[in-house]
């Protein structure tokens, strides 16, 4: 359990520290807005680890310097699952900017993750 909290803390720090300029991929959102992301996991499962790694990579690529990632381990805090209507694990929630977006899975499909986060215009016919 300690590891996961540590992970969460580490991620937040990393995000804050990042100050590299943003990517051209985000078209519709204001460059200055901070992204508030929340990743729900249940223990350090391979899927969770993969998801976290994928998320970090994407954020660095597209949202460097203006994102926070909060990792919530439901094994530690099961009471938090109901609040965000978590069913599937891992679930990534984009709390800000509005509207709320919900992406389930280990984020291994980069295209779909970007579409889901609206970092790329939705073009479902292609994806």
């Amino acid at each position: 359990m300690n590891t996961s909290t540590k992970t969460a803390a580490a991620i937040t720090v990393v995000a804050d520290a990042a100050s590299v300029g943003s990517d051209a991929g985000s078209i519709r959102h204001e460059e200055t807005q901070t992204w508030e992301l929340r990743l729900y996991i249940a223990g350090q499962t391979p899927k969770s680890v993969t998801a976290f790694a994928n998320l970090k990579r994407l954020c660095e690529e597209h949202l460097a310097g203006r994102y926070t990632i909060e990792v919530i381990d439901l094994m530690q805090q099961p009471q938090l699952a109901a609040g965000d209507q978590i069913v599937a694990i891992p679930t990534l929630i984009r709390r800000l900017p509005e509207p709320l977006r919900r992406i389930v899975g280990d984020l291994s499909n980069t295209e779909r993750t970007l579409v889901g986060l609206q970092l790329r215009p939705a073009n479902r016919s292609q994806s």
Binding site: L74, I86, V87, A88, I89, T91, I103, V104, R112
Partner: peptide, 13 residues
Amino acid sequence: EETGEYDLEGLFV
């Protein structure tokens, strides 16, 4: 949006 592998552990929790 579904991207890759997931399970319903959230429900179990």
